[in-house]
Design a binder for these strands. Structure first.
Lengths: 160, 160
DNA sequence: GTCAGTGCAAACTTTTTGCAACTAC
DNA sequence: GTAGTTGCAAAAAGTTTGCACTGAC
C-alpha cells in the first residue's frame, strides 16, 4: 500500500506549486516520515523518527514550519490532548473517534460509522465543516478494574 | 440564578471534605470567578479576572493547583484548542459542541440534542464515558464570505 | 501546633522568532 | 542572482516545581 505515500507526495507537490512554496528535500522527508507513523505523534517523537528511520536530520524549526504547510494541505491533523500538540496523518485514513482515560491518560481509538454519519450530517448553517475530532473522556476498562480491586482491598482491610 | 454558584460551592466543599483538602478562601474565590465567566477562558484570563472583578489576588501556581481539584470534582472541563489550555465551567451547563474556524481561529458553540443523544448512546464496551468534546473544524460563514469576495476581486482583475 | 496550601521565583517544556548560511528556482 | 528555507540559538509562552512562609484545622 505504498501508493498512499506516492499519492500524498503528489498532493503535497501540487499544494507547494499552487502556493508558490519550494519543493525542498526536507519537506518530502518529513511527509514521508509522517506517513510511516501509525497513530499519534508529537514533534519530539517525529524528530527522533526522522533521525533513526529516515536517517534525515532536520531542525525542530523546520518540523514546525513544514507541519503548518501539511495542516493547510489537509494532509495532517492536529490534536490537542495532554500538554503537547499531537499530530496524525489524515489522507486515506478512516475517521475515528478518541477515547481518553482520565486516570491513566491512555488514548485509544474506535470507529463507528453510524456516529460518523450523524456528526457529518449535522446542519451547521453557514459553517462549512472540513473535519472534526471527537474526544470521549472517562475511565478505561483497565483502570475501572484496578479501581474495583482497590475498593475491594480497602473493604477487606476494614473487616479485620 | 445565583443558586448555581451556591450549588457548586456546596459541591466543592463536599469534595474538599471527602478528599481531606483544606477549604481555603483562595479556592472558593477561584471557583466563584470561574462561575462568573461565560464560555472559555485560559489561565491568564482567569488571573486577570480574579484581579479586577473579584479583587482577589492569587498566584498562578494556586490557579493551576485549584484547577486540578475542580477538574477532579467535575466542576470544570478542560479544552485544548490552540496552544493554551482552555477551561470552561461544567456544572448545570448544557452540553454543547464547538465550531472552530481554521481561518480566523474563532470558536463558537452550538447545541444539537439529537447529536448529543447519538454520542452519549454509543456503545464503548468497557470504557465508561464521563463527558466528551466535539470539535468541528472548517470555515465560518464570515470567512467563507470573505474568501468569496477575494476570489471575485481576483477574477475581475484578470478580466482587465 | 502541625502540615496542607500559598506566593514567589526559578526551572522546565514546548513553540516561535531572528539571523546568517544555504539552495531551489 | 535572489528570495524562500533551513539550522541554530535565543526568546517567548505556558506550566511545573522547590522552598520559605502562612493559616486552616
Amino acid at each position: 500500500m505504498d501508493n498512499v505515500k506516492d499519492r500524498v507526495k503528489q498532493i503535497f507537490t501540487e499544494y507547494l506549486r499552487i502556493n508558490k512554496h519550494r519543493k525542498t528535500p526536507e519537506r518530502f522527508a518529513i511527509l514521508d516520515a509522517i506517513y510511516s507513523i501509525d497513530g499519534h505523534f508529537d514533534i519530539e517523537t517525529l524528530y527522533g523518527i526522522m533521525l533513526k528511520k529516515e536517517n534525515f536530520r532536520v531542525s525542530r524549526a523546520t518540523l514546525y514550519n513544514t507541519i503548518v504547510l501539511l495542516l493547510d494541505a489537509k494532509l495532517l491533523i492536529k490534536h490537542a490532548f495532554g500538554n503537547t500538540a499531537q499530530y496524525e496523518k489524515s489522507f486515506n485514513i478512516e475517521t475515528h473517534h478518541h477515547l481518553i482515560c482520565t486516570t491513566c491518560g491512555r488514548v485509544s481509538e474506535f470507529q463507528d460509522e453510524e456516529l460518523q454519519r450523524d456528526i457529518t450530517n449535522v446542519d451547521l448553517k453557514k459553517f462549512q465543516m472540513s473535519h472534526y475530532s471527537l474526544y470521549i473522556y472517562g475511565t478505561c476498562g483497565r483502570c475501572a478494574a484496578a479501581a474495583r480491586r482497590k475498593r475491594k482491598q480497602i473493604q477487606e482491610k476494614e473487616k479485620k
